Computed example of a mutant assay.
Amino acid sequence: MTQHIAFTDQTAEGTEKPDAAVVRDALGVGVAVGLSGFAFGVTSAGSGLGLLQTCALSLLVFTGASQFALVGALAAGGNPFTAAAGAFFLGVRNAFYGLRLSQLLALPRAVRPFAAHWVIDETTAVTLAQPTRRAARIGFTVTGLSLYALWNLTTLLGALGAEAIGDTRAWGLDAAGPAVFLALLAPMLKTATERAVAGLAVLLGLGLLPVLPAGVPVLVAALAAPLALVVESRRGDRADGDTPADPPGPDGRRAPQGTGGTSGAEEGR
């Protein structure tokens, strides 16, 4: 209800976005990200998965980061259960996206199970950027449809191409998956905390790679998030405790907080 009121107010103020502009933006995201499905198809085939297995991952899982994590761990010789666990934990974030989008989109109950399959980073970003519920629904639908169709098509082409050229490592295509993953992740690191989490995760993952079984370092790297949040929380507590009190005023009494001890004459200037 609160979100509906917010949408109505924005529309009344003339901020409604034309449908054509929403479709254009959504298609831009869908096409740009959908093309990276080719890299996943190549990486998956190089990890030893067959054509049907590769296509099934894109059809049924449809979350790029989790898919790349799974085939990357398998390619490194990791246990399938460990690889699946890492992919699962990466995909959990989509559940939190769904909680937010369910309020914004307010879709009929019969449609929600199908829409849930399209709740990923890109559809969430496009949906949240819209000023009205109508625009949000259009953005979500167009982004999800275009990205799902193109991602699966390019996955098929990538897997077929990998089978045709043989050993993907000989062509250096085994690096395509990690490269695309980093390209998708980098624009999301906007704050110092997010960059710290990413940096710490890299250090944990690379540092433990020689001593832990393949796939396990990815799970351990997830500890970077709570560690960074704990450090940030303690820094915030210390900053609050170090805030100096306001100096006493001319009459010896301490001024109310926020006045900085200024007198009435100074405030009137």
Rank of each mutant, 00 (worst) to 15 (best):
A6Q: 13
A6G: 00
F7Q: 02
F7M: 06
T8S: 15
T8E: 15
D9E: 15
Q10E: 15
T11D: 15
T11A: 15
T11E: 15
T11S: 15
T11F: 04
A12H: 12
A12N: 13
E13I: 00
E13S: 14
E13W: 08
G14A: 05
G14I: 08
T15E: 14
T15A: 14
E16T: 14
P18W: 01
P18R: 07
D19V: 14
D19R: 12
D19H: 11
A20D: 12
A20P: 00
A21F: 01
A21T: 14
V22M: 03
V22D: 02
V23K: 02
R24K: 13
R24H: 10
D25V: 03
L27P: 01
G28D: 09
G28P: 07
G28Q: 04
G28F: 08
G30S: 08
A32N: 00
A32Y: 04
A32V: 01
V33P: 04
V33S: 09
V33W: 06
G34H: 05
L35V: 08
S36M: 14
S36A: 13
G37W: 09
F38M: 08
A39V: 04
F40G: 03
F40C: 02
F40R: 02
G41V: 00
V42T: 12
V42Y: 07
T43L: 11
T43R: 09
T43G: 13
T43Q: 10
S44C: 00
S44H: 02
S44G: 05
A45W: 03
A45I: 01
G46L: 05
G46M: 01
G46K: 08
G46E: 09
G46F: 02
S47I: 04
S47Y: 00
G48S: 01
G48M: 05
L49I: 07
L49E: 05
G50P: 11
G50L: 06
L51H: 12
L51I: 10
L51W: 09
L52I: 14
L52F: 14
Q53G: 15
Q53T: 09
C55K: 00
C55F: 13
C55Y: 09
A56N: 07
A56F: 11
L57C: 12
L57Y: 10
L57P: 08
S58M: 01
S58H: 05
L59N: 02
L60G: 11
V61T: 08
V61Q: 01
V61D: 03
F62G: 07
F62A: 03
T63F: 14
T63H: 12
T63A: 15
T63E: 13
G64Y: 02
G64K: 01
G64W: 07
G64S: 12
G64F: 07
G64M: 05
G64P: 03
A65K: 04
A65G: 11
A65T: 11
Q67R: 00
F68R: 10
F68G: 08
A69G: 09
A69W: 02
A69L: 13
L70C: 04
V71N: 06
G72Q: 05
G72I: 02
G72V: 00
A73S: 14
L74F: 06
A75P: 04
A76L: 13
G77Q: 08
G78V: 06
G78L: 02
N79T: 08
N79Y: 09
N79F: 10
N79V: 06
N79A: 14
F81Q: 12
F81V: 14
F81M: 12
T82M: 10
T82K: 07
A83E: 10
A83I: 03
A83F: 06
A84T: 11
A84Y: 07
A84K: 05
A84H: 00
A85M: 14
A85F: 12
